[in-house]
Amino acid sequence: MEKQQRHQKVTARTEPFADKASTRIWEELASSDNPYIADSSRCHGYDLIDLMRGASYIDTFYLLFRGDMPSTDERQLLEKLMIGLINPGPRHPATRAAMNAGIGKTDPQHILPISLAIMGGEHLGAGEVEGAMRFMRRHRREDPVRLVEQLLKAQGEGQPEEGDWHIVPGFGSCFGGVDLMSSKLVTLLLELPGCGDIMKWGAQFSSALEKHNMGWLNVGVAAAVFADLGFHPRSGAGLFQLLSAPGLLAHGMEQANKPITAMPFISDKAYTIDYD
């Protein structure tokens, strides 16, 4: 007969949990008549109504995450990135998830969460941004050409037999080549006065990768700007999702009123079962 394992009796640990949630971001001041109704709301000290009157959306967005207003250069850099990332395009898997939900008549309020969940992926998605930010922050003082050679030597065996290879998060091949749109975004961003050291270093790193048929991916571009603007790497994934959200929603909603036949359904002839 097997010996019975003795386990501990279940008892509470009485850990010191906080009495209240706390925040440095938002302050709500109660109405004198009802403690649940806010009479004013402040973002890092600025009254929300004042922000509506005197600040831009980009200012307030930056303030929310960074705690202070952006400089003119920072505002311009963030705004240009937001335009550059506004739509992943109808071929991106996250957008296709939104379109699929739309054409399938999924409740409209679910379209964005569905597509953003897919956008969390680690291949050309938000899941790649934090790693890209950390990589560039860690290596920004190294010679990018030499680093590329070292990485190729060290990670060459990690290259998949088929398909794209992201040699490090944020950089790699895209459908077997260099992603041209990402390169174009970078060309414009590099011209801005707010463009920072990490973006400049990333551009050199990307150039060194080009002869190996790799370069910037848009997640890498986003990561470089986020890092230069001082956002924490852990915020990178969510920021990327946020900036991609308008395009995801627009494409999903565009399909929502179309008949289900308005998108392809793979025919039986083109559907093959091929067990390993």
Binding site: A21, S22, E28, P35, G67
Partner: peptide, 13 residues
């Protein structure tokens, strides 16, 4: 309630 969340940020500005 509004004061059930502890604000620890910058004062009004």
């Amino acid at each position: 309630r509004c004061d059930d969340v502890l604000y620890q940020g910058k004062p009004h500005r």
